[in-house]
Simulated scan of single mutants.
Amino acid sequence: MEIVDVAVIGGGQSGLAAAHALRHYGLTPVVLEASERPTGSWPHYYDSLTLFSPARYSALPGMPVPGDPDRYPRRDEVVDYLLRYAAALDADIRTGVRVTEVREAGGAYEVGSVGGGRVAARAVIAATGSFGRPYRPQLPGLAGFEGELLHAADYATPEPFVGRRVVVVGAGNSAVQIAAELARHSRVTLAIKAPVKFARQRVLGRDLHAWLAATRLDTAPLGRFLRRPPRQPVLDDGRYRAALAAGAPEQRPMFTAVDGTKVTWPDGAVEAVDTIVLATGYRPDLPYLRPLGALDADGRPLHREGLSIVRPRLAYLGLEWQRSLSSNTLRGVGVDAARVARRLAGELAGRCRPQ
Rank of each mutant, 00 (worst) to 15 (best):
Q138C: 14
G141P: 05
G141V: 01
A143W: 04
E146C: 09
L149R: 02
L149N: 04
L150I: 11
H151Y: 01
P158Y: 02
P158C: 10
V162T: 15
G163N: 09
R164S: 14
R165P: 04
N173Q: 15
A175Y: 06
V176P: 06
I178K: 03
I178F: 05
A179R: 03
A179W: 11
A180M: 06
A183F: 02
H185P: 02
S186I: 07
S186G: 10
R187F: 13
V188T: 11
I192G: 06
P195F: 01
V196D: 07
V196E: 01
A199K: 06
Q201T: 12
Q201R: 15
G205R: 08
R206V: 11
R206T: 11
H209P: 05
H209A: 13
A210R: 09
W211N: 03
L212G: 00
A214Y: 09
A220R: 11
A220M: 10
R228Q: 14
P230M: 02
P230D: 00
R231C: 03
P233T: 02
L235A: 12
D237F: 07
A242D: 12
L244N: 04
A246H: 10
M254R: 13
M254Y: 01
A257Y: 04
G260W: 13
G260N: 09
W265H: 00
P266S: 08
P266R: 13
D267P: 02
A269R: 11
V270R: 15
V270G: 05
V273W: 00
V273Q: 05
